[in-house]
Structure formats: C-alpha cells, structure tokens
Nucleic acid binder design. Structure first.
Length: 113
DNA sequence: AACATGACGTATT
DNA sequence: TAATACGCCATGT
C-alpha cells in the first residue's frame, strides 16, 4: 500500500460510527484536496483483515455511490442503518458529517441541506 | 503512447 | 431537478 493510500484509510478509520464523510472530504482531510477518485480507488484496495469502515463514505450529494441494484449498495445501506443512519431512496438523510473545520459549511452545503 | 473507465466533485446551463 | 462539461488519477486495454 502506498503512503497516500494509508493516509486515506487512516482518515476513513477515524470516522465515528453513525457519521459519514464524502469521498471529497476524506481526500481533503488526507491532504489530497480535489482527488476524490483517489479515495474511491483506495477503498477498493482495502486488504481483507483491514478493519476500515468504508460504508461511512458516501458521495457529496448524500447518496451511496453504488448502483441501487447492486449487492454492495445493499450491504452499505444495511451497515449504515445498523448505525442508526437513516436512508431514503439510497440517500443518507440524518447525518452529521465529520468536517474538522467549519461545521457551518456542512450546515449550508452538506447533503442534509 | 492513446483512449476508456470508474465506489467522485464542482460549476454551469 | 437534470444533463453536461471538466478536473482528477490509477488501471486496464
């Protein structure tokens, strides 16, 4: 695993249960602003046995990134609901995104909006 | 080397 | 709200 991938996974591991972060937020937190696709790539490289809560990473618009008919989508939705994260039509409703800096940004521009 | 393909995001129309 | 267009970047062909 590359150093950047390790930083990305470290950020994902830091997401508290019941909360979510978008790919872009994870990237920014890992010092890779604007590189959301790199986060998506890193999540696909998660080694088995690596306890990374990948299900807490969603798209910036609040929706799960997998096709609604896929197994991955159902697994992610199930895990989120298990953490009391409400979902409607593949979209996360009640969430308090982790944002390190200003929570105002999330209030104004987060998926909840 | 050239082009296509994503678990993406933002801006524009 | 929806459809495009870019920007971004590792991989696969």
């Amino acid at each position: 695993m590359s150093a950047t991938a390790e930083r990305i996974l470290e950020v994902v591991r830091s997401i508290p249960s019941g909360q979510t972060m978008s790919y872009g937020q994870v990237a920014a937190r890992a010092g890779l602003k604007g590189r959301a696709r790199l986060v998506a790539w890193a999540l696909k490289q998660i080694p088995i046995d690596e306890p990374v809560p990948w299900h807490r990473v969603i798209r910036s618009d609040g929706r799960i990134a997998f096709p609604v008919y896929s197994q991955s989508f159902r697994l992610q939705a199930r895990r989120l609901q298990a953490e009391n994260v409400k979902i409607k039509n593949g979209r996360v409703i009640t969430q308090s995104i982790q944002s390190g800096d200003s929570s105002l940004d999330q209030m104004l521009w987060g998926p909840e909006h």
